[in-house]
Design a protein around this nucleic acid. Structure first.
Lengths: 222, 222
DNA sequence: TAGATTGTTAATCGATTAACAATC
DNA sequence: TAGATTGTTAATCGATTAACAATC
């Protein structure tokens, strides 16, 4: 088996892809590792290394062909199929996500949303909104593997548990609760790892403040 | 000068802080490095190392005192002062951010928002919405260092440039455009670094899909 | 060919982990 | 004291960078 591809690399591949799509729309045909590196702020060596990790090759003198790169990256990133997710929690954040048009463009489909509040049940932005009671069955029946958690913090842990049990393995977590995938698979008892991606805008802003203050104090002291 | 504190550490410190606040509200007084490690999913050694980096000490036998840790972390993270930011772009994302109550709780204040669309000018959720023409002056006059960029992709680069020129050094970027802080300081011509934090929900979901698929294929092949 | 760019190997760097002496 | 936990040092790991032979 080839070396594992780290999360860092995946993130960069997705950024290359976006840049390449823009270049193509501008009529570009070829691209060099240093162009792509400049575009996303890494060295050309990183670009070549990344491509080499996923067995993408270029021409020693002529760089990489954009029309070859784009489908390869899309394939690696699994962009060919539509990506079905469930959304749990239809409060402000949940509704904003249902209205978010960008998802469709990227092939991400919120198949269904769930809430415990009867007044929210029905549909929103053409997405069916069901009672959270039906969540587990829905996930199992539709083989959903990725879910968005946008419930109040107080119910985060229990909803997370339900989603885990039903087979969700990738979580986009909008709560501030630390989710821990401690559980074993219900079926085979093996260690069932899951991946939690936290989204916390406040945290990111605070982080920015810290770094900006740090940088300017270094600056003024030298 | 002490060793630089990396972004990784800052992010962890912020997570410790959140856990500690919860523990305190439950009546806890002391905490051990392994408790905190468990809570955020790192080893106890990391917790001790992190604290040692910021000169936080505990008691060899009795762990750390929560009432001492919390203010120390708040100080390091700059949580004592309110953190003023500007928001540029009052479309769907921008408005959702203005309505986002969490910010206030964390001491983050959107002092003003900006848009070029006359119909959005006025105020929204008690936040003044001004024309983008006034952005540069406002930033300079109020000494704002951190800004949220939530404009359409097409105007991202030019608005970014204006914000940079005016002195914004930390960016929370909701566009899909790669922002590059290439510019020199207008005043002293030094290299003016800035920090860009990208928020891209689609990207994070795609990343989740990739990782989940990877994990399950590893799982099934062993 | 000469020049330029890839692909890969080795060196460096930084962050994480392990281990353990100090000590409460 | 004995047991437990910190604080720190050294070892490991992984990712980034530098360098350069291969070659178009």
């Amino acid at each position: 088996m080839a070396d594992a591809i780290s999360e860092h690399i995946i993130l960069r591949l997705a950024r290359y892809l976006r840049v390449l799509q823009k270049l193509r729309s501008l009529g570009f045909v070829k691209v060099f590792s240093n162009n792509l590196g400049d575009a996303i702020g890494v060295t050309p060596a990183v670009v070549r290394k990344d491509f080499s990790m996923i067995s993408i090759t270029g021409n020693k003198r002529g760089g990489y062909t954009i029309d070859y790169l784009i489908p390869e990256l899309e394939r690696i990133l699994g962009k060919r199929e539509t990506q079905n997710v469930v959304l749990v929690g239809c409060g402000k954040i949940g509704r904003a996500l249902m209205e978010y048009q960008e998802f469709r463009k990227e092939g991400i489909i919120i198949k269904a949303a769930f809430d415990v509040d009867e007044s929210r049940i029905g549909s929103h932005s053409d997405i069916p909104v069901l009672h959270t009671e039906k969540l587990a069955d829905y996930v199992v029946e539709n083989g959903i593997r990725v879910g968005i958690l946008a419930v109040p913090d107080t119910s985060a842990a229990s909803v997370f548990e339900i989603m885990m049990q039903a087979g969700i393995r990738g979580f986009l977590n909008f709560t501030t609760v630390e989710l821990k995938c401690s559980g074993k698979c219900p079926d085979d008892g093996c260690e069932s790892e899951c991946i939690v991606q936290n989204v916390n805008i406040s945290l990111e802003i605070e982080n920015l403040f810290y770094l900006v203050n740090l940088k300017s104090s270094l600056h003024s002291s030298t």
